[in-house]
Simulated assay, not measured.
Amino acid sequence: MQNFQFLHVLRPILHYGLHFIAPGLLAYLFFRDRWKKAWLIMAATIAVDADHLLARPVFDPNRCSVGFHPLHSYYAIGVYILLLFFPKTRVVAVGLLFHMFTDLQDCLWL
C-alpha cells in the first residue's frame, strides 16, 4: 500500500517535470547557443494540450492522451517528425515530440 501511494504521488511530479524541466536540459544540450529561447519554445509546446478541451471529460487521469486527442494522434506525430527536417521548426518539433514521449511514458503508468 505504501508503494502505491508513493507511485501515485510520483506520477504527476515526473510527468510535469518532464514537461517543463527536461526541455531545459534538451535545450542546453542541443541548442546551447540559444538554450533559453529554445527552452521557452519547448515548454510552450504544452499548448498542444488544448486539444484535451475537445474530450469529455476534459481531464481523465486514466486516459492515454497519445492516440486519443487530435494533436496527440499518430498522424500529428508524423507531422512533428517532418518538422525536424526544417531548421526553422526544429526546436518546436523537438518540444512537441518530447511532449508526446512524456505523455506516452505517462500512459505506461496506467
Results as ranks from 00 to 15, higher is better:
1 M>W: 00
1 M>P: 01
3 N>T: 12
4 F>M: 02
6 F>H: 00
6 F>S: 06
6 F>T: 06
8 H>V: 04
9 V>R: 08
11 R>K: 10
11 R>A: 07
11 R>Y: 02
12 P>G: 13
13 I>Y: 03
13 I>P: 07
14 L>K: 11
16 Y>E: 11
16 Y>Q: 06
17 G>L: 11
18 L>I: 06
19 H>M: 05
19 H>P: 02
19 H>S: 02
20 F>L: 13
20 F>K: 09
21 I>D: 07
21 I>P: 12
21 I>Y: 12
21 I>M: 13
23 P>D: 14
26 L>S: 14
26 L>Y: 14
26 L>C: 09
26 L>K: 01
27 A>P: 12
27 A>K: 05
29 L>N: 04
31 F>I: 03
31 F>Q: 01
32 R>A: 14
34 R>H: 12
34 R>W: 00
35 W>E: 05
36 K>A: 09
36 K>H: 09
37 K>M: 02
37 K>E: 09
39 W>T: 13
39 W>Y: 04
40 L>T: 00
41 I>N: 07
42 M>D: 02
43 A>T: 15
43 A>F: 12
44 A>T: 14
44 A>P: 01
45 T>H: 03
45 T>N: 05
45 T>R: 03
45 T>D: 07
46 I>F: 11
47 A>E: 03
47 A>S: 12
48 V>L: 11
49 D>Q: 09
50 A>T: 08
50 A>S: 10
50 A>L: 14
51 D>E: 05
52 H>K: 11
52 H>D: 04
53 L>Y: 02
53 L>A: 08
55 A>H: 10
55 A>G: 00
55 A>Y: 06
56 R>A: 04
57 P>A: 14
58 V>L: 12
59 F>W: 08
64 C>V: 06
64 C>P: 05
65 S>F: 12
65 S>C: 03
66 V>N: 09
66 V>C: 14
66 V>I: 15
66 V>K: 07
68 F>M: 13
68 F>W: 03
71 L>G: 03
71 L>P: 00
71 L>A: 06
71 L>T: 14
72 H>G: 08
73 S>F: 12
74 Y>L: 15
74 Y>V: 07
76 A>P: 01
77 I>A: 14
77 I>K: 12
79 V>P: 01
80 Y>Q: 10
81 I>P: 15
83 L>M: 15
83 L>T: 06
83 L>H: 08
84 L>G: 06
85 F>W: 07
86 F>R: 11
87 P>M: 00
91 V>S: 01
92 V>M: 01
93 A>Y: 00
93 A>I: 02
94 V>K: 06
95 G>R: 02
95 G>A: 07
97 L>T: 15
98 F>I: 13
98 F>L: 14
99 H>S: 04
99 H>E: 10
101 F>K: 07
102 T>L: 03
102 T>C: 11
103 D>A: 14
103 D>Y: 01
107 C>H: 11
107 C>G: 08
107 C>I: 11
108 L>A: 11
109 W>C: 03
109 W>E: 09
110 L>V: 02
